[in-house]
Nucleic acid binder design. Sequence first.
DNA 1: TGGCGATTCGTTATAACATAACAGGACACG
DNA 2: CGTGTCCTGTTATGTTATAACGAATCGCCA
Lengths: 159, 159
Amino acid sequence: MTASGFDTHDHGHCMAQALQTAEETCARKGLQLTAQRRRVLEILLREHRAMGAYDLLDVLRADGLGAQPPTVYRALDFLVGHGFAHKLERLNAFIACAHPGERHAPSFLICKSCGLVAEMPSEGISQAVMTAAGGLDFVVDRAVVEAEGTCRSCRGAAA
Amino acid sequence: MTASGFDTHDHGHCMAQALQTAEETCARKGLQLTAQRRRVLEILLREHRAMGAYDLLDVLRADGLGAQPPTVYRALDFLVGHGFAHKLERLNAFIACAHPGERHAPSFLICKSCGLVAEMPSEGISQAVMTAAGGLDFVVDRAVVEAEGTCRSCRGAAA
DNA sequence: TGGCGATTCGTTATAACATAACAGGACACG
DNA sequence: CGTGTCCTGTTATGTTATAACGAATCGCCA
Ligand SMILES: [Zn+2]
Ligand SMILES: [Zn+2]
Ligand SMILES: [Zn+2]
Ligand SMILES: [Zn+2]
């Protein structure tokens, strides 16, 4: 029920809500949430983890649909471009946004042990980045922030 | 003469100093700065910009030496692993460290206009990342921080 | 009604980035 | 010497991402 990707939650609800938010946002902004785009978003939401483009492609194909890399990358370009999903540069992978609709500069936690990824609060980080960049007279459009480490349950398992 | 990659500086000096620091550090820690590793570091220092592995390979070959991808990636693994160079995840590229020898968690500014990359001060950012992660009971080993935007001179040129 | 631009999608091919696997050479150590 | 370790050369392959072109769809308006 929480926003953290490390906690258990009502996943059916989280998925339905994210999809609905995407639909409403697209309707409001005149964006086309086409079948392909929606399908890729559904997979990301259902799996609730970081997935490579070719992982997504495998799922699409397993569902009996012929698909090629450009199809997936186009859908991902749309979803990432409009904030429904994010790219994890460190993993060359993609994940559904945990806070769709809200305007935010995402930052991530990546557990090196279990592979789970969580979006974390980023206000303080964004502020620190802008302050540091301002000192060099640099204007930041966007910041990639991806922290690797160990989540609570993996630390517990290791002990 | 400054640490910012956006400013002009005495590049011969900066390069010689970085190489010397690398040699001293390797001697002290019993690491082998072999010909291949040293050469890749020299290229990164000379070019003073982010370079892809295959860009480095092209330079090696232009210098008349046969080389294959694994050669470059091995050298980069060494240099990155010991802090003499960094990987820019956003660019799939590598750059010589601007502060070799000092223990630091690097963070970067990437100008989308001119492509220059600078290492920026990261104490405040690291602190903010650890604070945010701690709130989710997550222990951070390492954080990728890469801010994209526009440097001063490019903003000046655009105006 | 018919043309027209904009957007999306299918398809083929290829570019760009990275690693697996194995053999050989250099070198230190006993 | 024999042996283990580290580094390198080489071949091949795996993984991630995009270029390019044509066809289908749809809203728009002469
Ligand atoms: Zn998000
Ligand atoms: Zn974990
Ligand atoms: Zn550095
Ligand atoms: Zn610039």
